[in-house]
Design a protein around this nucleic acid. Structure first.
Lengths: 159, 159
DNA sequence: GGCCCTGTACTCGGATAGTTATTGTCCGAGTCCTACTGG
DNA sequence: CCAGTAGGACTCGGACAATAACTATCCGAGTACAGGGCC
């Protein structure tokens, strides 16, 4: 899993603490966690293409959440950054070489047992991620440190 | 996930169809699925280090399962090939820069909410993989095509 | 005084290098079988 | 005829390149504001 996923999730949580009518430039988001600005911008672009954040150029421009934090799941963020391709790709080696000739044409009709097994595990992973929302994580942060949201908001309010 | 995981699982299933007192060279396993011999050998080495297969050099040498197929899980194989490191690595960016100064030293005592969320999902994935054994998959193959085990065994018996 | 226009500064977005991880290949160390030689 | 031994062939195992993916960076396109000029 790419490192940018971690950055993206933290940025989304931070944005959820900030008034939705206020856009935050990538440079500011990067400075908050001491990250490379240009590269974080790239990740935020990916979030923008997925509709998770909306972007705006020019002065007073920047990024803001594209929809309510209750409707943004970790699965959405992970898919936007990492791609939604399966981790386990069945390349169909059971059809290659002598193995394929043994199974015969009938083998093509039955699904690949190995692929199914990994798909089941991956589905469990996806379901779990799809259940966690940015709003939910923000609440957990608030519970651990009730003052955090205000502190974050104030820091980003400073010019 | 690395491609070698697929190869390794299929090889383990094939080995489970073959008499345990008979070793199969990597070249033969590779030929069965038309795979690059040397690279498959590399993957089998990794399985050997994990104890999933046992290896033997020289004539009549090769690989065989290191323990009963009921005791080899997909998690074991995936960990042997791909490594057992977490997919999501928490680099602790919440402690970097102004964010860390806002949270203060207290922030270091509370666990990272984001990391925990991803860990939960990954745990679900691991549990699911740990429940599937090579023996289980072999049974599924047998159910889909009862003649398959014999065909495989006979093919590998041919010199 | 109000409106329009131009210039400027700011921000995103995609095109461009550098670096790490993965894939693929090769040759040496070790082992077992086989055939030969000597008793 | 049997035992010991030397040779050869086979197989794994780790060291060595090629390729692809990820990470990082830069500059151009577009936008909104601000200041000045004109009506």
């Amino acid at each position: 899993m790419r490192e940018g996923v971690e950055w993206a999730v933290h940025c989304c949580i931070n944005l959820s603490f900030i008034s939705p009518d206020r856009a935050v430039p990538a440079a500011r988001l990067a400075a908050f966690h001491d990250l490379p600005t240009a590269y974080l911008n790239k990740q935020l672009n990916a979030l923008g293409r997925a509709g998770i954040v909306s972007s705006r150029s020019g002065p007073r421009g920047g990024f803001r959440l594209g929809r309510e934090p209750e409707k943004i799941t970790l699965m959405d963020v992970a898919a936007a950054i990492d791609g939604s391709a399966r981790a386990f790709l069945c390349t169909g080696i059971r059809h290659q070489g002598p193995a394929g000739r043994i199974a015969g044409p009938a083998g093509h009709r039955t699904p690949c047992t190995v692929s199914q097994a990994f798909s089941r595990a991956e589905l469990a992973w996806r379901r779990r991620l799809a259940r966690q929302t940015i709003a939910g994580l923000a609440d957990e942060v608030r519970r651990a440190n009730p003052a955090a949201p205000d502190h974050v908001r104030h820091w980003f309010d400073r010019t």
